[in-house]
Design a protein around this nucleic acid. Structure first.
Length: 520
DNA sequence: CAGGCTATGTTACCCGACCT
DNA sequence: AGGTCGGGTAACATAGCCTG
């Protein structure tokens, strides 16, 4: 499968695509996504192919395409197509690119050491001159980027390994590099002519193959992007380069990272390192194998081994984290799908007030609250006139309950009794039935507090009314009587229930004193 | 083993105080 | 005035222990 796919995306086919300006949809049947660098903020994102709105036109790699960021939105965005591929593949490459972005955050020494890159890029070009470059391969190149950096350092200048490594990273840290690398992914496969490699070999040897090839390709195509590279990149020269390619190589140092990386990764054995024309077929073979996952894994392992020998061991960890990242992304996607499904298909449970309102409304609609019901409830509660019961209905259940208690209990009862003594269990249940019919369920504590609160409030009001008179009489009274004031008042209430409130003011003092004495 | 007693934990009620 | 909260207390339930 993959081999067929890679064949389809082989250098020749890609080249023909580029020449014929074939839309991205024709890259591969399995290619469903594209990595795009947004024009607005240069961010690299993953865009499904169906999101392209210029799909009928030519959507080529490394060219600007218009797409919809949101399927339902009319808003369109533009960005440069870095590569096409399957979703999984693009996710992988996206992560690699993001990894590069992180590496770019190491700002210093950007312009340093263009040579290692150039030399490495030359090697990479030698491999790219083989017939095996394709989008998939370029993807693999991206995946192997970090690993190849180390290998590159080994291949280019083993003696100055650390130095080269540093320099290479610095060059990679160039901000526009992501664009360039991504674009070269598509560009480079198109430039696979034997003449290129041959000329390069003649001119610069194997090490310079890559650069010379790039020169050739650039001279051929002369795209705008290349011009950008030429203008932005710093002009660096190497002793191995030809004079023709000096200025272009300086730009290529950024563009061709992926290519030489791949080639260097392909060169597993140290025997490949020495520059000789024989290397090319070897590299080609490895490039072919790159299209197979299993072989790629093997290659990775070998690279890991070589890197382990050199003391670099981070690639394995990088790979592991990459896989882990992919898994987590998949989990996240599935969870998001679940959440979206639940958002669409489920209604959240409303709060208690809303539920009460809904219950009440439902009962109204179902005609449960008929006149007969009101009369029945009034009879159960002990109210002769149902209209009075209806007048008790307030905006809250507790308020309604209080009003009903005030209606059914006389002031004497409110002053002298409390709790279940004031309102029996049966009446409470009847009141509660009516209240819940009107306002929905009400907690036990709230309901009892509402009923008891009426008694409490009435007594408190009475006490406050008696307070001035009590204070005047309390002066001659001993202190210990003050402490028992509440009890005396309560006792007074029991005895004084038949007296008028106005008369109480006068007699309170006398009664309280006598009652307090009785208590003690 | 059954019944009685006691200690402990839980629940409901009552009340005062405070806030809105 | 209505509503809420926290403390105190009685009522109730349960487990554990002791005794006949």
């Amino acid at each position: 499968m993959e081999k067929q796919q890679t064949r389809r995306c082989s250098v020749s086919s890609v080249h023909s695509q580029g020449n014929l300006s074939i839309a991205s949809a024709q890259c591969a049947d399995t290619h469903t996504h594209a990595i795009i660098q947004k024009e607005k903020d240069k961010k690299i994102i993953l865009v499904p192919l169906h999101s392209f709105i210029n799909f009928g036109k030519v959507v080529k790699v490394h060219e600007t395409a218009t797409y919809k960021s949101d399927k339902d939105s009319r808003k369109t965005e533009r960005g440069k197509v870095l590569l096409f591929g399957t979703e999984e593949l693009c996710v992988d490459q996206l992560q690699v690119l993001q990894e590069d972005v992180i590496n770019e955050n190491q700002p210093p020494e950007k312009q340093h050491d263009s040579n290692p890159i150039e030399t490495s890029s030359k090697k990479g070009s030698s491999s790219t001159t083989s017939n095996k470059s394709s989008n998939d391969r370029s993807n693999h190149q991206l995946q192997n980027k970090s690993k190849e950096r180390c290998a590159l350092n080994e291949l280019s200048k083993p003696k100055h390994h650390s130095q080269i490594n540093e320099n290479y990273n610095r060059v990679n840290a160039l901000p526009p590099m992501n664009i360039n690398t991504a674009s070269t992914i598509a560009i480079l496969p198109k430039r696979k002519e034997k003449s290129v490699s041959e000329v390069q070999r003649k001119l610069f040897g194997d090490d310079t193959n890559m650069n010379s090839k790039h020169c050739y390709s650039f001279e051929e195509e002369g795209s705008d992007e290349i011009e950008e590279h030429l203008t932005t990149a710093t002009a660096t020269t190497t002793t191995k380069k030809s004079k023709k390619c000096l200025t272009e190589d300086s730009s290529l140092k950024q563009i061709s990272n992926i290519n030489y990386k791949r080639t260097t990764s392909n060169k597993k054995s140290p025997s490949i390192i020495p520059s000789s024309p024989i290397q090319n077929p070897v590299a080609v073979n490895h490039a072919d194998n790159n299209q197979d996952n299993s072989t790629e894994q093997n290659k990775d392992e070998t690279n890991d081994d070589t890197m382990d020998e050199r003391g670099s061991f981070s690639f394995k960890e990088f790979k592991r984290l990459q896989k882990e990242n992919i898994n987590l992304r998949q989990q996240k996607t599935s969870l998001e799908n679940q959440v979206n499904f639940m958002k669409k298909n489920y209604i959240p449970m409303p709060d208690i007030n809303s539920r009460s309102w809904i219950v009440r409304l439902a009962k109204l609609f179902t005609q449960q609250l008929s006149a007969n019901d009101i009369a029945t409830h009034a009879r159960h509660i002990g109210i002769s006139n149902p209209k009075k019961l209806l007048n008790c209905i307030q905006n809250r259940g507790t308020h309604t309950a209080r009003e009903i208690v005030r209606l059914i209990c006389s002031q004497e009862t409110l002053l002298t009794k409390s709790g279940k003594e004031g309102v029996s269990e049966e009446k409470r249940q009847a009141i509660r039935d009516f209240v819940e019919l009107q306002h929905g369920p009400i907690p036990d504590h709230q309901f009892n507090e509402a009923i008891d609160g009426v008694f409490r409030q009435e007594k408190l009001k009475m006490r406050k009314a008696q307070a001035p008179a009590a204070k005047a009489i309390q002066k001659p009274v001993e202190k210990n009587q003050n402490s028992n004031r509440q009890q005396s008042i309560d006792a007074f209430y029991t005895k004084k229930s038949t007296l008028n409130i106005q008369e109480k003011d006068k007699e309170v003092a006398v009664v309280t004193t006598s009652d307090s004495d009785e208590h003690f």
